[in-house]
Amino acid sequence: MTGQPPTQTDSATEIQAKRLASVAHLARPVQHDINNLLTVVFANLELLKRTAAVGGPQRQLDRIQEAAKRLEGSTRAILSLLRRPVGQTAAFKMSDILRPIHPLLVLLLPTGGALRLDLPEEDPPVLVDRAAFEDALLAMAREAAETMPRGGALSMVLEKHGGSVALAIRHPEGMTLPGLEILAALARASGGTAELASDGLQLTLPVSAPAG
């Protein structure tokens, strides 16, 4: 069980799994505490901005507010990953997968401007293993950080086409990102299609029929 100390018979993999399970149990209360603390930060920043002098003081408060928003996005993303069940295929909106993980992808890439995310205002749900899809996206970002040429960028464009949702991932010509192959396999396993090219991946996933 999670609360028991490791024994000599436990393998390194089992110990790591138990540790991750313990950390996952902390994710929700930690997120709740961070939300409370950031609520105080944002509320007081707004009060300070009402009375701060125009110019430098206002710009400094804007930078603090922007930093707090980035902290909120990054912590929310990593704590959500810890709570995510693995090995489960269910109906999700692709935008609800891409938008929360975006801060972590940006952190992994060489520069903050190395990733462009273009999402529609509304997209229908598709069947996908969310945890596996997120893992593949993170792997892709790590690989891109190691091989992307200086000044290069990634883009992810999500669109709805009839009865399917299309996701185009583009990178500089000639890069090799094994994470894209995993994404392609996940799309095919969910009944979709995937086309790998020298400049990225184009995948489609069929819209999930409503339950019942």
Rank of each mutant, 00 (worst) to 15 (best):
Q65L: 04
A52W: 03
P85V: 05
A77W: 02
G73R: 02
L61K: 03
R63F: 02
E46S: 15
N36Q: 12
A43E: 09
L81A: 08
R50M: 12
L82T: 03
F92H: 15
L79G: 01
R50F: 04
A53R: 13
T75R: 02
V23D: 09
R70H: 12
A24N: 06
V86N: 10
A53S: 12
D33F: 10
L48N: 00
A77T: 01
A27D: 11
N44F: 13
Q60K: 12
V30I: 14
K69H: 10
L61Q: 05
S74G: 10
V40H: 03
K49Y: 01
L61A: 06
A90C: 09
F92S: 00
A52L: 13
Q58T: 05
R70V: 10
L26G: 03
I64W: 03
L37G: 06
V86R: 15
L45N: 09
A43S: 15
R84N: 13
Q58G: 06
A90T: 09
P85W: 11
V30F: 08
A77D: 02
L61G: 04
G56Q: 12
S80Y: 03
A52S: 15
V30P: 03
Q31V: 00
A43L: 11
V23C: 02
S74H: 11
R28Y: 05
H32Q: 15
P85R: 10
R63E: 11
A24P: 03
T39L: 04
F92V: 01
V30E: 02
L71P: 02
A91M: 10
Q60V: 14
R70C: 06
A67R: 07
R84E: 15
A67P: 01
D62M: 06
V41R: 02
L45P: 07
A53G: 13
R50V: 13
V40Q: 11
K69L: 14
I78N: 05
T75P: 02
R70F: 09
L61S: 08
G55F: 11
V54Y: 05
Q31G: 12
H25D: 15
R84A: 12
I64P: 00
G55V: 08
D62S: 08
V40R: 09
A53Y: 05
N36S: 10
A90Q: 13
F42Y: 08
F42T: 02
Q60E: 14
Q88Y: 10
P29C: 09
L82R: 04
L81R: 13
A90I: 09
R28H: 08
S80A: 14
L38D: 06
A77E: 05
G73A: 14
L47F: 05
A77H: 03
R50D: 09
N35H: 12
G56I: 10
V40D: 13
